[in-house]
């Protein structure tokens, strides 16, 4: 199984390298190759998750390895699903390195399954993990879109059209991307937090304990809630939305890792 995951990593690596080279030289054959490699990687990754599910009898979102690998998988699938609906020029060159980084993290931590305390074992836990990580994937897409937005805007504002201007989509397209990602990611995050609370009640008898992970989830939720609210009421879009997408994703990452690392707490993979 470790070999299978290594193979998944190699495929993502290949896809990322081709997409990056293609970003520079715009070769269409490479673009096609990167896409094929990504499909292969995502397909193999899916079977890896299914195998883990069948062998261990639980959705692979419990350990650090499982959560990060599932995060990477969600990102790949979210990206491919987006591509199917509408295209964002050269999006792959920004999303794939992020996927690759996540897979690399998943590869570097022990892959064995954690033996959860009986109290922790629950469908709620699995549902919570899946929803929260899927939400993170959409926020990650918004984050990539935000970076692209800032790069493109910088060149337009400075009146120096250069390398990025020719390769990135219009500001309008990037802002739409931001909005789409938020409108999908935010409900998922909300449901993720609710299912987490239900699981908490089952495991510890309390919906909410104000442990660091919960506090930071709430902070993340508030950031995205503010973004959505401001977008639709006073028009926080475009540049501000792009910056907020980046800030929001930093909060997501801190909730995922920072909390366990700096603040501790008894979330399953807190260590």
């Amino acid at each position: 199984m470790e070999f299978l995951f290594l193979l998944v990593f190699v495929l993502y690596l290949g896809a990322t390298i081709t997409a990056m080279v293609c970003f520079f030289n715009l070769n269409q054959r490479l673009r096609l190759m990167a896409r094929t490699l990504l499909w292969a990687a995502a397909g193999l990754h899916t079977s890896y998750l299914v195998i883990r599910f069948v062998v261990y009898g639980q959705t692979p979102v419990a350990s650090q390895h499982e959560a990060v690998s599932f995060f990477a998988w969600s990102l790949a699938v979210a990206y491919l699903a987006f591509r199917w609906r509408y295209q964002v020029k050269n999006f792959a060159a920004f999303v794939l390195p992020l996927i690759l980084a996540l897979v690399l993290v998943a590869l570097s931590v022990p892959g064995q399954v954690v033996d959860l305390a009986p109290a922790m074992r629950s469908w709620w836990m699995q549902l919570h993990g899946v929803l929260a990580l899927l939400a993170n994937a959409f926020f990650a897409l918004a984050f990539c879109g935000g970076i692209m937005y800032l790069l493109q805007e910088r060149e337009i504002k400075r009146k120096r059209m250069g390398f990025f201007s020719a390769r990135l989509p219009s500001l309008e397209a990037l802002d739409n991307l931001n909005q789409h990602c938020l409108t999908i990611g935010f409900p998922l995050l909300t449901l993720g937090i609710i299912s987490g609370a239900l699981w908490g009640r089952q495991a510890w008898g309390d919906f909410w304990q104000w442990n660091p992970k919960e506090v930071w989830s709430l902070i993340t939720w508030l950031i995205y809630a503010a973004m959505i609210h401001q977008r639709f009421t006073v028009g926080w879009r475009r540049r501000r939305a792009a910056i907020m997408a980046i800030v929001g994703f930093c909060a997501v990452l801190f909730t995922l890792w920072g909390v366990s690392f700096f603040l501790g707490g008894d979330h399953p993979y807190a260590g």
Binding site: Q152, I156, S165, S170, L171, E172, A173, N176
Partner: peptide
């Protein structure tokens, strides 16, 4: 072209 970069279509 600039208008397209900023405003899309």
């Amino acid at each position: 072209q600039l208008a397209r970069k900023i405003l899309g279509e």
